[in-house]
């Protein structure tokens, strides 16, 4: 994972060099004098060799210094301080909600394979994973805010500031964000369950005279959870991506809306920080997944012991 983070950080750093034109112009506009240009050029250290610049930048990053935003002329860290927690909070909450619901629907569909309820769940899940998230958001907003007026259509409040407000504001974004995850996990659980049900050890379980409940919930489900847990990291990474849309739809002041603004104004330091942070969160999720994996799958422990 360390190596992966290094590769990412280098790639992220290279974004500046890939920029057509020049970072200085991007920062200060095209109408600056040659003198200012040279000064800023030197100040930014652009006259130093690439690897040295990378080293310096990386050292800064490790100390929590992501540079200065071209657009707002203030440290990137200060910009992100209030925003990143919101995005991470939304993503993790949505994942935590999507996980059990997805597994539940998946198991129901698999157990009733070929029956009506299976068809309904499968079709809904298929449709939900094809719907654009932002559109679901607008749809919800149209119904619950515009037509019914039940829920606020924008904003974000932390629970300790105003709990009621927090819940109300959160309902639509979380539904919107987790729906895709629920659908995906449900589909995966279903196919994974059906795969397990066909295995020899399930036949062995039946041949022992166990009840249907133990066969399904002990022998099948435990095995089916392995691939689902292994993709938890990927899920979280999707959620972070998805929260960008949700933040944009519901005007939530998270990292997503900042990133969008940074991109339109080519504010590279902000982009760099955002990419690096999302990658870091995903990496952390991957490591967590690996740890969880050991809990679900006893085979892993073995290979590591050998």
């Amino acid at each position: 994972m360390l190596i992966v983070m290094l590769i990412i950080s280098f790639g992220v750093f290279m974004l500046v060099s890939l920029l057509p034109g020049d970072a200085v112009y991007a920062m200060l506009g095209d109408t600056i004098s040659q003198e200012t240009y040279d000064m800023v050029y030197h100040e930014l250290g652009l006259d130093q060799p690439l690897l040295l610049r990378y080293g310096n930048w990386m050292l800064g990053v490790l100390r929590g210094d992501f540079g200065t935003s071209y657009q707002f002329h203030m440290p990137v860290v200060d910009l992100l301080k209030t925003r990143v927690p919101i995005t991470i909070f939304l993503s993790i909450l949505a994942t935590l909600i999507a996980m059990p619901l997805g597994v539940l629907f998946g198991v129901i569909a698999a157990v009733h394979r070929g029956k009506k309820i299976d068809t309904v769940i499968t079709l809904t899940a298929n449709a939900c994973s094809c719907l654009p998230q932002f559109w679901i958001g607008i749809f919800l907003m149209y119904i619950f805010s515009v037509q019914l007026g039940w829920l606020p259509s924008f904003g974000f409040t932390w629970p300790w500031e105003n709990f009621g407000q927090h819940i109300l504001e959160l309902i639509m974004p979380i539904i919107c964000l987790s729906i895709d995850g629920i659908a995906g996990i449900a589909r995966q659980t279903r196919s994974s369950m059906l795969e397990s049900i066909r295995q020899d050890y399930v036949r062995t379980a039946w041949s022992k005279g166990l009840t249907e409940r133990s066969v399904i919930y002990i022998h099948t489900l435990k095995n089916s959870m392995i691939p689902i847990v292994s993709l938890l990291g990927v899920r979280l990474s999707y959620m972070v991506g998805g929260s960008i849309f949700v933040e944009s739809v519901f005007s939530i002041p998270g990292m997503g809306s900042l990133l969008v603004r940074a991109i339109t104004s080519k504010d590279i330091p902000v982009v760099q920080a955002c990419v690096l942070l999302t990658a870091f969160v995903t990496c952390a999720a991957y490591i967590l997944t690996d740890l969880l994996y050991v809990l679900v799958d006893p085979r892993i422990k073995l290979t590591q012991k050998d």
Binding site: V4, I7, G11, P20, G241, I263, V271, V275, T282
Partner: peptide
């Protein structure tokens, strides 16, 4: 494969957005 792994760690939307910011 390591580079690949690195790319997979960045959510696809974020990656695409970062590239858009440059190109």
């Amino acid at each position: 494969m390591r580079t690949n792994e690195a790319l997979r760690c960045v959510p696809a939307v974020v990656l695409a957005m970062a590239l858009v910011s440059v190109f």
